[in-house]
Amino acid sequence: MSNSQMILVAGPYRSGTGDDPVKLAANVRAMNETALTLFRAGHLAVTGEALALPLLETAGSTRPGDPLYDEIFHPIAEQLLSRCDAVLRIGGPSEGADRMVAQARAEGKRIYLSLSEIPAAV
């Protein structure tokens, strides 16, 4: 029997970036690299950004924090997390990532603070 988990990778997206596109992209890359490590360990790793960013572009969002961003970005992550088994919190300060941890705790999901805490799926 597999112990594969669906894990939301939650880390900083906007925090500390001044909304600089290069810094935003670096934060997304850090979450994607973590997700790849989890995938290679047999888990289904997801990020809210992977779903929200294409929708924001399609909706016509022009910048982080605009009304479309507020409508889509965090609500997508919150819905996604509700369908996950766990959350992995990575990176530095982030109000949004901390909200994901609080939601996971409220929903009784596993909370990981390090890749080393997560067993490989069998």
Rank of each mutant, 00 (worst) to 15 (best):
R29S: 12
G16F: 01
R83H: 13
T47N: 00
R99A: 15
A59D: 08
R63Q: 15
G91L: 04
H74Q: 02
E49R: 04
D98V: 07
L53Q: 15
G60S: 13
R89M: 01
R40A: 04
G65Y: 04
A35L: 05
A102G: 01
A104S: 02
L81W: 00
M100R: 07
T34D: 07
L8N: 06
A52Q: 09
A97H: 05
L51E: 13
R99S: 13
D19E: 10
L55T: 10
R40F: 05
A77Q: 05
A77P: 02
A52G: 09
P54Y: 10
G42M: 08
S61H: 03
A30H: 09
V9S: 06
L38K: 06
G91S: 06
A104C: 03
P21R: 11
M31N: 09
I72R: 02
G48K: 00
C84E: 02
T58Q: 14
P67G: 09
R83S: 13
R99H: 08
L51R: 09
L68T: 14
P93E: 14
A26V: 14
A86I: 06
I76Q: 01
A104G: 01
E71I: 03
V101D: 02
R40W: 00
R63Y: 11
S61L: 10
A59W: 14
T37N: 01
